[in-house]
Amino acid sequence: MTMAAKIEDRLTTLFRPERLILKDESAQHAGHYDEPDAPEITHLRIRIVSGKFKGMSRIARHRAVNEALGPEFADGLHALAIEAAAPGEPTRW
């Protein structure tokens, strides 16, 4: 299973999102994370709308997603941009 598939599966299981978009931005940071054993995804943008975020602050939402992806950070995920919203909240996307 690819790293992207693992991430999507974990986020779907934990947050039951109405909308989930994973955008691999690793190519935009070529050379930034220059290790011979670099993972397939080093920089990722996550756009997620989930009822689990209702009543949570932006920081709490980010912490929840970061905690969910702890194994991927341990495996070399280097940077994560999170755009999280509850249903009905405006999004830029």
Rank of each mutant, 00 (worst) to 15 (best):
S57A: 05
E35C: 07
D24R: 04
D34L: 09
K23N: 11
W93K: 15
I82G: 10
I21M: 11
Y33D: 08
H78V: 04
L44Q: 00
G70F: 00
A38I: 07
M56R: 10
S50H: 08
G31S: 03
A27N: 11
I46W: 02
R58S: 10
E35M: 08
R19D: 13
A68N: 01
M3Q: 12
W93R: 15
A60S: 06
D75I: 03
G76H: 01
Q28P: 03
M1L: 09
P17H: 07
P90E: 14
A38L: 04
L11Q: 02
G70S: 08
S57H: 03
A79H: 07
N66C: 07
Q28M: 03
K6M: 12
I82F: 13
I82P: 05
R63G: 04
I41H: 00
E35T: 13
I46G: 03
Q28V: 00
A85L: 09
T91E: 14
D9E: 14
V65E: 01
D75A: 14
R45S: 13
L44H: 00
D34S: 11
L77G: 01
W93E: 15
E89V: 05
G55A: 11
R47D: 14
L44R: 00
P17D: 03
L22A: 07
L77N: 01
F15K: 00
H43M: 00
I82W: 12
I48R: 06
I21A: 13
A79P: 01
E8R: 14
A38T: 08
G88T: 04
P17F: 10
H43I: 01
G31T: 03
R47M: 15
M56S: 10
R16E: 13
L22I: 09
L20T: 06
M3S: 08
T2E: 11
E67L: 05
H32P: 00
A79S: 10
L20I: 07
T91A: 14
K54F: 13
